[in-house]
Design a protein around this nucleic acid. Structure first.
Lengths: 231, 231
DNA sequence: TTCCGAATCCAACAAAAGTTCCAGAAATCC
DNA sequence: GGATTTCTGGAACTTTTGTTGGATTCGGAA
């Protein structure tokens, strides 16, 4: 089992001895593509780390619509909240592709934190970071239109997929819709409007960023940038 | 200065000596009604606790619309995130009424947490709790209609305003709108529809809960409960 | 290649939310 | 008490988002 423990921010700065204890406490699980890792509302599933594959964190409402909170690649942690407070899981997690996931139970985590104060203080900092992301997400949902959220998503995907100015999307419209909290049709419309506003460009199957500043304007305000062909 | 330190969850279980250190680090501030306590994006304002009065936590978008994240009464903490990570404040805080607020700077807080591990572990637990609230809030914004959010708000206000089955609202429509992330007119419409669906009842100036189960249904699903007069 | 399912495109429509506007009612201030 | 401000009620309208359904394209499997 590969594990470069030091690459995981939660475990940064820990002594070799502490890392050994963590390794002893951790269990490694394998999931097939599509398999449920844990469900919202279920008893605390513990602290998770994606080692391999892609994991989707999502919630579902009564009408069956999905909201993808995040798509996690290695090496990312998830379920930090339930892991630490022992409450029920706040969302669902599924393996999108075949995935390998490291799990530390609530009890083990508390034991480790009781003696390793570095782990505890890392945890505080990282929980704070997660918190900021949620605040940001919340404001996006309250204030931004769907084209605006879409622009933001493109900008985000482009930065994290390397420093290339143009960033393709390998997400389907359905998946984008789940991330933005809307439906496929609406995403299709929004894509079309960004396309013929000249902010995106279609080459073959994929879309690329054609006007980064325009996208940034749209992501910031809710209106199309001036001097652009309207739909 | 009144301070029943033990009533503050962050300081639960601390030794008398630790409480003394905290007391020494804390500064007490007084604000007039309407005064800004700190602004979003400004350098970290530290850990805050409302001792007296009412404090509004909010964000504002480019078009000037407000989103009230919370209205805090004594004794509540706020700005936990920036206080711990030292980053900029994630939102604005104003004193709604004349208010007294206790402040512990980022540096002092880190110093305290470095030696008082109980404080540190309280902090982890409470950050986790705040985190859950944001997840919940986020789902409300993505999935629930405005009447549904309004129903939820009424139910929430009623529980925390004592155990009385009927709960009045002393919030104005404008304030409700800021909490729900919408505009006054829309709140007015939603109130009217809950009113003539028989879920709320108007007595004099205030509105009361007339059908708690109906409200719960509406808050859970997005549709009016069956067997109710439609608007 | 041909077929099939998945993904997309597009139009038309329905519903929800946001906007504008104005008229009263209530509270507050002189 | 009168004037002013704040809050509320409600209509009419626009925009955005959600929904439905059909046509089309693409890519992989038989």
């Amino acid at each position: 089992m590969w594990t470069n423990w030091k690459a995981i921010p939660y475990f940064a700065g820990l002594s070799a001895c502490a890392l050994e204890r963590i390794e002893a406490a951790a269990r490694c699980h394998n999931y097939q593509a599509g398999a449920l890792i844990f469900a919202e509302g279920d008893r605390c599933a513990g602290f998770h780390i994606v080692l391999e594959g892609l994991v989707r964190i999502y919630r579902m409402n009564a009408e069956g619509r999905l909201h993808t909170l995040s798509l996690l690649r290695p090496v990312s942690a998830f379920n930090e909240v339930a892991a630490v407070d022992g409450g029920v899981n706040p969302f669902n997690a599924v393996a999108v592709t075949q995935a390998q996931v490291l799990v530390i139970s609530h009890d083990h985590l508390l034991n480790l934190m009781a003696t390793e104060r570095t782990l505890l203080s890392n945890y505080v900092q990282l929980l704070a970071h997660v918190n900021r992301e949620y605040i940001e997400r919340l404001e996006d949902m309250t204030f931004r239109s769907i084209p605006s959220r879409l622009a933001k998503l493109f900008l985000y995907e482009s930065t994290y997929a390397g420093q290339i100015a143009e960033a393709p999307t390998q997400l389907t419209q359905e998946e984008i819709a789940a991330i933005l909290g809307t439906t496929r049709e609406v995403v299709g419309r929004a894509l079309r409007s960004l396309l013929n506003a000249g902010l995106l460009e279609k080459r073959g199957r994929h879309m690329y960023i054609a006007d980064r500043h325009g996208l940034e304007w749209l992501a910031e305000h809710n209106t199309m940038p001036a001097g652009v062909a309207e739909s």
